[in-house]
């Protein structure tokens, strides 16, 4: 009798911890998923499949890490999807199969990504346009220009460039190592620099941050520039995987990256969340689509489940805030 009560209390305390520490909560969900999938989904736990899941997480991770900066700052970036398409096309178009153009192209694309982010940041902070509208407008603008000029795969990358998308170190794909390095860098920026602290402050309460001497405008601009950088890295990786960019390759990344960040425990109201939460969010989404594929769930049913799960996960987080 009392043993049952005690277990219940412990379970309750466990749930409380999970809910008060979102990152821990997300990782608990991730671990439970992994264990359940390993037990019940045939072929899931093979090393090939697990590496496959990681490989398929790279593109979404890179853009989601960037998105994390915007969301933590209380903003968001709806333009990353079309920006990725545009930059992927730019990558293969400028490289045009030439090895000597690889490094200049990568530098160019990164600069373009950061410039798009800079514009977003300036529109949000200096023109005081709501981030939803600012980045939606930017997204529509890029999409219009892109689709006026291109309707198919354009250009190509040299064989050497496929290194990023296809090579492995031992069993680990280069892309995954690259993603982890980016994650470490992003984590360092968020948690161990003045900028990171200021960003959490700005997202938590822009007014309080401003009154305590944080230049919130500049902090938010930098956050948007980093979001643009994340999109650029994704575009480069996708170009390497697909060997060329097309005007639709980035479609959906805007909403998927926001989903990943939100599933990773960051509220859209800003001030909370982090890179490791986002990484877990991405992995949860990737594992879902992986097991859907193994279990032969159709693409359409995957949409239904993904939508329902997104709502359910966020409902789980908000249940905490209400209490």
């Amino acid at each position: 009798m009392s043993a049952i009560a005690q277990t219940q209390r412990r379970a309750g305390a466990f749930l409380n911890v999970l809910q008060t520490n979102p990152t821990l909560g997300v990782y608990a969900v991730l671990v439970i998923m992994l264990v359940a999938c390993a037990l019940f989904v045939p072929g899931f736990a093979s090393s090939d499949n697990l590496i496959n899941i990681l490989q398929r997480s790279v593109a979404l991770s890179l853009v989601s890490f960037g998105q994390t900066f915007a969301v933590v700052g209380g903003s968001l970036d709806l333009s990353v999807g079309n920006a990725i398409s545009a930059m992927a096309v730019m990558t293969s178009l400028v490289m045009a199969g030439r090895v000597e153009m690889m490094i200049p192209t990568v530098i160019l694309v990164i600069a373009v990504g950061m410039f798009i982010g800079l514009l977003n940041g300036l529109i949000v902070t200096r023109l005081r346009v709501n981030p939803f509208i600012a980045t939606l407008g930017m997204s529509l603008f890029i999409q219009g220009v892109l689709f006026s000029g291109f309707d198919n795969f354009a250009g190509s990358v040299p064989r050497e460039f496929e290194f990023l998308g296809y090579s492995t170190v031992g069993p680990i794909p280069v892309g995954v190592i690259f993603m982890l390095l980016v994650a470490l860098g992003a984590y360092f920026l968020l948690r161990h620099t003045r900028f990171g602290y200021h960003l959490y402050g700005t997202g938590g309460s822009a007014e309080v941050a401003r009154l305590s001497g944080v230049r919130t405008g500049r902090v938010l601009i930098i956050a948007h520039v980093l979001t643009g950088l994340g999109a650029a890295l994704t575009a480069i990786f996708i170009a390497s995987r697909l060997r060329a960019g097309a005007p639709w390759v980035g479609q959906g990344f805007e909403l998927e990256s926001i989903s990943a960040v939100v599933v990773g425990g960051a509220p859209l109201s800003g001030g909370r969340g982090g890179i490791w939460g986002t990484l877990a969010g991405v992995l949860i989404l990737s594992i879902l689509s992986n097991i859907f594929n193994i279990l032969n769930v159709g693409a359409f049913a995957q949409d239904v489940l993904r939508g329902a799960i997104l709502i359910a996960v966020v409902a789980f987080y908000t249940a905490r805030i209400r209490r």
Partner: peptide, 21 residues
């Protein structure tokens, strides 16, 4: 459930899109 409308209606968008397909 206090889910932000951005997430709710985004989820609904996916659900509807999948369901009708």
């Amino acid at each position: 459930l206090n889910v932000p409308s951005f997430v709710t209606t985004l989820g609904m968008l996916l659900v509807l899109q999948g369901a009708i397909s």
